[in-house]
Simulated scan of single mutants.
Amino acid sequence: MFLLSKLLGFATDPATVFLLLILLGGLMTLSRRWLSLGRKVLGVTLLTVTFMAVVPLEYWAETWMEARFRAPNPLPEKVDGIIVLGGAINPVVSEARGQVSVGGGVTRMTTLIPLAKRYPEARLVFSGGSGSPFNPELREADYAKIFYDDLGFDTDRIVFERDSRNTRENATLSKELMQPRPGETWLLITSAGHMPRSVGCFRAVGWPVVPIPVDYYTTGLDKPWWTELRFSPQKGIFGLAPLIHEGLGLVMYRLMGWTDTLLPKP
Rank of each mutant, 00 (worst) to 15 (best):
A88S: 14
L37P: 02
R230M: 06
W64S: 10
T107P: 01
T48M: 14
L85I: 05
D222K: 11
P72D: 08
K175G: 03
V41T: 11
M28Y: 12
R68I: 09
L21P: 02
V159E: 08
D142A: 06
I22T: 09
S36L: 14
L30R: 15
L255D: 04
S132L: 07
T29G: 03
F18N: 03
L138K: 09
F202S: 04
Y217I: 13
S101H: 14
L263H: 07
D150F: 05
N90S: 14
L187N: 04
T107C: 01
L262V: 08
F126L: 05
A141L: 10
T12G: 02
G105W: 06
S191W: 07
E62M: 15
S132D: 14
R118E: 13
G131V: 13
L35Y: 15
L19D: 03
F51P: 01
W225D: 00
P208C: 08
L8A: 15
I212R: 00
L24F: 13
R39C: 09
I113G: 03
A141T: 14
L30K: 13
F126Y: 15
P56V: 06
T155R: 06
L112A: 02
F69D: 03
G129H: 10
G105A: 15
A67F: 07
F2Y: 14
R197Y: 10
T167L: 06
T261E: 15
W226G: 00
V100R: 00
Y148T: 03
S232A: 11
V84C: 01
Q99T: 14
M195T: 07
G183A: 02
M52G: 00
L8I: 15
L173H: 07
S198N: 07
M252G: 03
T12W: 12
G131T: 12
D142I: 02
T110Y: 09
P182C: 03
V205K: 01
G129F: 12
A171W: 07
D154T: 01
T261G: 11
I158G: 01
A61I: 12
L263F: 15
E184T: 06
Y253F: 14
D215E: 10
G105K: 04
R139I: 10
L187A: 03
F69W: 07
Y119T: 00
F134Y: 15
R230C: 02
K6S: 08
L30Y: 12
M28W: 15
R118Y: 06
L177S: 04
M256G: 01
N90W: 08
L37G: 00
I22Y: 07
H245P: 02
S232H: 06
L177Q: 05
G98T: 10
Y119H: 04
F202P: 02
T259H: 01
L37C: 01
L240H: 02
L115I: 09
R123K: 15
T48Y: 09
